[in-house]
Amino acid sequence: MQTARTRKAETRRICVIGGSRYFGRLLVERLQAAGHEVTVINRGSGRPPAGVEHLVADRDDEAALVAALGERTFDVVIDQVCYTPVQAAIAARAFRGRARRYVMTSTIEVYDPATAGLPEPSRDVPVPESAVDPASWRVASDLPWHDAAYLESHYAEGKRQAEAVFTQDGGFAFAVVRSAHVLGGGALEFTGRLAHYVDRVLGGQPVAVHAEPLPTVFVHYAELAALLDWAATGTAFTGPLNACSGDPLDVYGLVEVIASRAGRTPVYETVAAGQPASPFSFDRHYAMSNARAEKEGFVFSRTSDWLPEAVGEALTARGR
């Protein structure tokens, strides 16, 4: 896998909000191994590696968060678990004056035209960061963001508005990493989306697809951790940056890799227009461009370089 072309050898004080599992855990391990002073904040759901400072606080409770931080200051904060403008506003106030740089993990879903009210992008052009500008995005903090059901159904809008809060009134240098669909790590991949396809192929069950599924983009979990490390310690870019391997892939391409590794013949079932299909079958286009990341100095591997191994790990996790 590719990594950043250059990197400064400078120890930093870094706070990671979240970071207890998957690529967040790997990120913390990378930062610690590089000699940085790392502090992890979470609600106590998972302890960080030995030697990493652990602060237990609910980020939704501003007073508790500020109390946990005490007099600490940081060179960089990496926010892995910010989902709403309310959470962003709390963090912006809590870290104003105590952090120089803030990096938020966001998502490809911010480009979904079905939820963003955006015009349908060209199918032939990967979506650039400028398609969603957090500097001008409207923030509505009075919506029911604390309601779990509302948040789940408005995940993409919550991320867009969180980006907007930090961009418009953060009080520090702000960068946001918009991650593609994350794969790899076998049993560590907790979303279950790759496992869904592995199970369907192994069981000879049909994979639900749209009539004309469109490609999307992916990123390996270890490469995303490397990029977040670089965003915090090896570069000074601000604003949004897409994180994805450069070769888009549709659901058929993904399933064929699984079938090839499993030695099975896949079965497909086409769903009616407007009906939900399997996790990576899309009837809308928002495959991202990674041109800005590469211009800034981070060169991604190709999906075809790492996907077969990721599928192999998923098969092993399923006992195959």
Rank of each mutant, 00 (worst) to 15 (best):
R178F: 07
A291K: 09
E129T: 03
T216N: 02
T316C: 13
A180P: 03
V219T: 13
A226M: 11
L118N: 05
S281G: 10
V66Y: 04
A291R: 12
V271S: 07
R13H: 11
V66H: 03
S301F: 09
F166Y: 10
V38R: 04
T191N: 12
P213N: 05
P266D: 09
A91G: 13
A91Q: 15
A236D: 15
V255E: 13
A262F: 04
A140T: 15
A148G: 10
A68G: 11
G24H: 05
V182T: 06
A99H: 00
E53N: 10
H181Y: 13
E313S: 13
A175H: 00
A156L: 07
G274Y: 01
P144H: 07
Q32Y: 04
A273L: 08
H54A: 06
P113W: 12
H285L: 11
W137I: 05
R261T: 03
R320G: 08
S260C: 10
L315S: 11
A88Y: 08
V207T: 07
T265E: 14
R318L: 10
V56W: 08
I41N: 09
P85W: 04
Y286I: 04
F95A: 05
V76D: 01
P113C: 11
D229T: 05
M288Y: 01
T316A: 15
L27E: 05
Q275G: 08
F300E: 01
H196F: 13
A262V: 00
M1C: 12
D75S: 00
A92E: 06
V139H: 11
L227H: 08
G46I: 00
E109C: 13
Y83E: 06
A164P: 01
V251S: 02
A116K: 05
E212F: 08
F74R: 04
R12Y: 00
Q168W: 03
D79A: 14
